[in-house]
């Protein structure tokens, strides 16, 4: 006589096709006359079909970040070569202007840098400073201070709106602008130092004002950055 609980283990194997022919035949015959085991067989098949419908579970985004962090910590990821700053200054989604931007920025910094080097390494001014009277020198410096004050006012006026703009921009683009502002500030300080060292050198004056001018232009670019996107 067939014991149903024992036979159900065979039903489970039969569903998987893991029963030899003789036992399979016994199971088939029993299922035809036993509603309980027939229901069990249907349930096994229903579970199998249900399993086939199971969907993969999506892992959280932070999983990749953790893995990537660990890969970097173990030195398995080759770090990307750092882009030159003039390449980073141009928004990635504005490729048509990239060569022009890169060229202009490169020329600006090369110009400022080389002139600074020239200025700082030349013992005497390239342009002979006329033996101007002290009052004339004072007047020139006064003009320079006024121009600096105007640029600083412009920078002050632009700083609030540019800061606001940077907060609303895509973080990657904002970082590019932050980096370039920092570069501008660096050159501005270099130029200020050059003027302090050679207050009578008209070239130093010119480069200082050019550095201010470029910073203002960059801040204007930030404020109007919507038009770039």
């Amino acid at each position: 006589m067939i014991n149903c609980p024992d036979l159900q283990e065979d039903v489970s194997l039969w569903v998987d096709g893991e029963l030899d022919l003789t036992r399979a035949e016994t199971v088939k015959r029993h299922l035809e006359c036993c509603p309980e085991c027939a229901a069990f067989n249907r349930d096994m098949n229903a579970i199998r079909q249900g399993v086939e419908r199971l969907e993969p579970i999506e892992p959280p985004d932070r999983l990749w970040k953790s893995i990537r962090f660990q890969l970097e910590a173990e030195g398995r990821i080759r770090s990307k070569p750092k882009e030159p700053f003039w390449a980073a200054i141009v928004p990635r989604n504005f490729p048509d202007l990239k060569p022009a931007w890169s060229g202009a920025i490169l020329a600006l910094f090369l110009g400022i840098g080389s002139l600074l080097v020239y200025d700082l390494t030349t013992p005497s001014p390239v342009v002979p400073v006329p033996a101007a009277s002290t009052s004339h020198q004072e007047a020139v410096l006064e003009e320079l201070r006024k121009a600096e004050a105007n640029y600083r006012a412009a920078i002050e006026a632009l700083s609030a709106s540019s800061r606001e703009k940077l907060e609303s921009l895509d973080p990657v683009l904002a970082q590019v602008f932050h980096d370039n502002l920092a570069t501008m500030d660096y050159y501005l300080n270099e130029c200020k130092q050059a003027v302090e060292n050679s207050p009578q050198n008209p070239l130093a004056h010119r480069y200082l004002l050019a550095a201010y001018q470029k910073k203002v232009e960059l801040m204007q670019t930030i404020v109007t950055s919507d038009s770039l996107l």
Binding site: A39, R42, D43, A46, G50, L54
Partner: peptide, 10 residues
């Protein structure tokens, strides 16, 4: 006769 037809949703 009880069976799981229609019960086994994902």
């Amino acid at each position: 006769d009880i069976d799981l037809l229609g019960v086994v949703d994902r």
